[in-house]
Amino acid sequence: MKRQMKRLTWPSGLLAGLLALGTQTALATDQVTADQVVGEMERVFGVTKGERRNHTKGTCALGEFVGTPEAAGYSRSALFSGKAVPVIARFSLAGGNPKAPDSAKSPRGMALEFKLPANGLQHMTMLNIPIFGAAQPRTFLDQLVAMRPDPQTGKPDPEKLKAFVASHPDSQALAQLMASYNPPPSYANSAYFGIHTFKFIDRDNKTTLVRWRFVPEDGEKQLSAAELQALPADFLEQRLIERSQQGPIRWDMWISVGEPGDPEDNPTLAWPQSRKQVKVGTLTLASAMPQQGTECEKINFDPLVMADGIAPSNDPILLFRSPAYATSFGKRLSGQ
């Protein structure tokens, strides 16, 4: 059964886009440690030595980002200087199975490292779904426990999964969204969302609450049910490489500007679509390549790596991700 456990794919709507792993740091709110989470991830998906414990299957890309003049009115970050900023990108599938089929009804990720002047860095780690499946670390730990493969079948027990959803209301909005979700035919045909609320800080120290997303120039598309059945296990990487060879791939970065009463620290709740929208820049990727041995492979895309002018909210999921990423990264570097 061990071999089966290593080949599980990410179930639709179940812990969609879990991005946190590792460390012994605990959150005082519920005393969940990231070490507990990484242990459960390993029980669910198995361990691929030297690789990420989540979003294991991925592809690298290189390009640049140019901010708009409007962005500088909200944030003093060098990211929005209007000059080209080099970017290293990584696209990925949720889950810890490096052989997960690319047609799996699971979230896709886009992680970005922006190389700012004076060796500054800005990270953005996003999903192609607008909300998250947990408001607290306890929820996704409990969900992983419910996802443990049954020794007899090598698959999660459906009754345990139903019980989890029934007992964790903060998981239900994403579960409902994923029930009608079909993945994109290409990484280039998906929008990517920051999920959390962040703070933009301008030159006068004024803070604006924002949520960001990257919208593809190639348009958003979803696979049909027939295509999901017919496609091979591996197509996303090759399609991204081929698309980059045809010309630059672009996404516009937009922010939603928060208003009083908008949820700041709960990524399971969406903001109203009526919020002010501001285009703050354009990401252009010029090339894509397999991740092995290339620049994105060894990066720890910690979402709390931020430059002056951008700051985190007190979202407990966002704060949990940083120490978790650190332990996952340490395991990779040590070959575990």
Rank of each mutant, 00 (worst) to 15 (best):
K331W: 10
A72N: 07
K49N: 10
D218Y: 02
W212L: 11
L21S: 13
A134Q: 04
P86L: 08
A163H: 15
R148F: 09
P69K: 11
E242W: 03
R52Q: 14
R148A: 07
I241D: 09
F80G: 10
A94Q: 08
T207S: 03
C60M: 07
R148G: 05
I310F: 09
M147T: 09
S12C: 03
A163Y: 13
A111M: 14
G39A: 10
V257Y: 03
P267N: 06
E70N: 13
S328R: 04
A134V: 09
R203Q: 03
V278M: 01
L240W: 05
L93H: 13
S12Q: 12
N182F: 12
P185Q: 03
D265I: 01
T33G: 01
L231Y: 11
F329V: 03
P272G: 04
E64C: 06
F214H: 02
P303H: 07
E159P: 07
P130C: 03
P11A: 02
A225R: 14
G82M: 08
F114P: 03
K83P: 01
I317M: 10
N54C: 08
T284Q: 08
A134H: 02
V87D: 00
W251S: 04
R243S: 15
L209Y: 00
T56I: 07
Q245G: 12
A230C: 04
F320H: 12
P184Y: 01
P312A: 10
N54Q: 12
G109N: 06
T125G: 05
K160I: 13
L93I: 10
F140R: 04
A188K: 08
H123K: 12
Y181P: 11
P184W: 03
G73S: 08
M147Y: 10
K221W: 00
P312W: 06
A307F: 04
R148K: 15
